[in-house]
Amino acid sequence: MKLSELFKKGKFVITSEIGPPKGWQVDKCIHEAETYLKGKVDAINVTDNQSSVMRFGSLATCILLKQKNMEPIFQVTCRDRNRIALQSDILSAYAFGIENLLLLTGDHPVLGDHKDAKPVFDLDSVSLIYAVKKLESGEDLAGNKLEGEPPKFCIGAVVSPCAEPLDPQLFKMEKKIKAGAEFFQTQLVFEPEKFVKFMDIVKKNFGKVYVLLGITILKSVGMAKYMNENVAGVFVPDYLIEELKKDKEKTKSGQTGIEIAAKLIKEMKPYCDGVHIMPLGWDDKVPHLLELAEL
């Protein structure tokens, strides 16, 4: 089912994500999704060689999820494929009933484990959205007619609401909306006041566009500090770091992180259309988080 249908019904949409393994044996990854996410979230986003680290493919994982009656969101980045391969993979996905896409530019290869790889970026997030809209109109990017019925997707994109400066982000967000993005998944948010301000600007300037709040479970003080140093658009405020420091055992078990995440969700829920949980390996903690956040 397309996420847009859920948004239109006014449902507070819940999505999570899985990262395929480095290897071909994906049973464990699919089994985890079935155990911890199936029936609890509306859709599962499958990352595309996340952080530029070579892994099992997003498309194949999406197909496996679909076979187990889970709703996948096919994440597609522009880092590894040119416009021919991108359009081809997206058409292929549709044949397997994959209707939700998350279209990104993607990290640069130097951030991953094949630093010497060719960075493709033939298209970027905006032109990829444009390409998918072309496919939906029955033509490819070069203007050639597609055979048979055109596909019809629900197109998602990403935005970073706590980035500084914010204006260039809003500029690109608006370009993505104009190109055809229907929903946005945000970068991780730890600063509700910034998010509320961002949503206010979005509602005033861009009209109705659906936004999924990006949330993760903080695992440790080190993780928070690392993100503050290295991850674009992510700032974990000091008071949250203090909370993680308070009870080492509780933080280690994940309980502190879950409590923080639940509190953040509750605080920002009135301002957005759904939440996207990035468990970063802690899939087993998602059900407890959803419970605590009363979702």
Binding site: H108, F121, S125, V126, P168, K175, Q187
Partner: peptide, 11 residues
């Protein structure tokens, strides 16, 4: 570094 034409990547 990505030679993007339509705006910043967010990275």
């Amino acid at each position: 570094s990505k030679s993007l034409l339509n705006g910043p990547c967010g990275g």
